[in-house]
Each structure stands twice: as C-alpha cells, then as structure tokens.
C-alpha cells in the first residue's frame, strides 16, 4: 500500500499539471468574486471564509475524473481489481484518494492563507478556514471517488462527475463554512461544527472507497 501511495504520488508530481491548474483555478475563482460583489472590504471579510470554501470545493472537483481514468487506460486498474484477494479494492481506492488529495488538494489548503489575506479575513478566520479546509477537503475527494468510479468508462465524464458529486458535498460545505465563520463571528460556536465536519470526513472515508470499489468492479468491461 505504501508502494502504491508512493507510485501515485510520483505520477501525480511528475505529470505535474494537476496541482498547478487546481491552484490557478482556485486563485481565479477567488479573484473573480470581488468583481462580482464589489470591492467593499467589510463585505469581503464577512463572506471571505465562504468564498474560500466554495473555491476550494470547485477546484477540488477539477481533477477528479482523472482519478481512475489513467489507470484504466494503461490497464493497471484491472490489475488492482484482480489483486482483490491480497489487497482489498476499497483499501486500494482509499490509498489512491489519499495520494490524489496530497498531490492536488493539499496545495489548495496551503495557498488558502494567502487568498484569505486578499479577502481581508482576520488572522483567526484565516487559521480557521485553513484548518476546516484541511479536515474537510478529504471528504470531498472520497465522495468524488464514487463519481469518478461511476464515470470511469465515459469518454467525457468530467462534467458528469461534478454534477453527480456536488449535491452530495453540501453537508461538508455547510459544516465547513459554519466552523470557519464560528471562529470569527462571536455568538456562533467553532468546535461543534468542526467536530461534525471531522466526523463527516471519517464517515465518507469509509463509504466513499467502498462504493467506489463496488462501482469499479461492476462497471468494468
């Protein structure tokens, strides 16, 4: 499993494009918002955490359809499915999701503080937004794995994956933004939504890979 993780990491880093495109997309989405709502710094500070979350959510969906497609094209997906008796497919999918998250989504979390400065969010809010993103984005990857596995055989499945996955990520978005806002706005609590967010992440870490492995096994040709 460690070898698989390292392999995925190396493929992700050497082909290189995914992470950079994701970060650029995140940057572009966040940069477009002030043009839409006006340059009022107070308003931007209030909606800042929400914008960071929406941008990260959309950017996290961006590279998902490639999660299994490359492996399907060069045949390694079949080998992973055949090795089911030695390494459970769900576990393989889980490791692939982790590697995908490390390569493509972790950079988004890393640049979040910088974008938070653009949005005039105060330091505590930036810290909270980064922490919630670090905990919440794996859940998006795990849910997205199901969509990616369902659409793996489709030639242009990318848009379909986003359409299928977005409604399912709404709870993650709600609790992520609630926690990030709770750190800044005084009456709202920070810890309860943050803990629920962590629970959601762990829940999807089980459900997502399991459903994705079922979809891969039954959807294969």
């Amino acid at each position: 499993m460690l070898a698989l993780f390292r392999r995925e990491l190396q493929i992700g880093v050497r082909t290189g494009n995914g992470a950079l495109t994701g970060v650029l997309f995140f940057l572009a989405v966040v940069a477009v918002i002030p043009f839409g709502v006006g340059p009022d710094l107070n308003l931007l500070a209030r909606i800042g955490p929400a914008i960071l979350w929406i941008g990260a959510l959309l950017a996290g969906l961006l590279g998902l359809e490639r999660l299994f497609q490359a492996d399907r094209e060069d045949g390694s997906l079949d080998l992973m499915l055949l090795a089911d008796n030695r390494h459970m497919t769900a576990l393989t999918v889980f490791v692939k999701c982790l590697a995908h998250w490390t390569v493509n989504v972790l950079p988004l979390v890393v640049v979040t503080p910088l974008l938070g400065l653009f949005m005039n969010v105060e330091p505590v809010g930036i810290l909270a937004a980064t922490a919630t993103l670090a905990v919440g984005t794996p859940a998006i990857t795990f849910i997205g794995a199901v969509g990616a596995a369902l659409a793996v055989a489709l030639p242009r499945g990318g848009l379909l994956v986003s359409v299928l996955v977005l409604p399912l990520t709404i709870p993650v978005l709600i609790f992520g933004v609630a926690a990030a806002r709770g750190a800044v706005a005084d009456p709202d609590p920070f810890l309860p939504p943050f803990l629920i967010l962590a629970a959601l992440m762990l829940f999807f870490a089980v459900i997502g890979p399991l459903a994705a492995s079922l979809a891969l096994r039954w959807g294969g040709d």
């Binding site: 409604p167 709404i170 459900i207 459903a211 979809a215």
Partner: peptide
C-alpha cells in the same frame, strides 16, 4: 449498476443532508 450504486449512495446521504440543512 452505475445508477444503482449512485442511488444507494444518495440514499445513505439523504439523512445527513437533511440534518445539516436543518442546522443551517
């Protein structure tokens, strides 16, 4: 099979969505 898996994943998710939206 693909639609069946998606339907079941959605079915598991419906209570969570309901609960989180109530919170919201």
């Amino acid at each position: 099979r693909a639609a069946a898996i998606l339907t079941l994943v959605g079915f598991v998710n419906i209570p969570i969505i309901k609960f989180s939206v109530d919170w919201w």
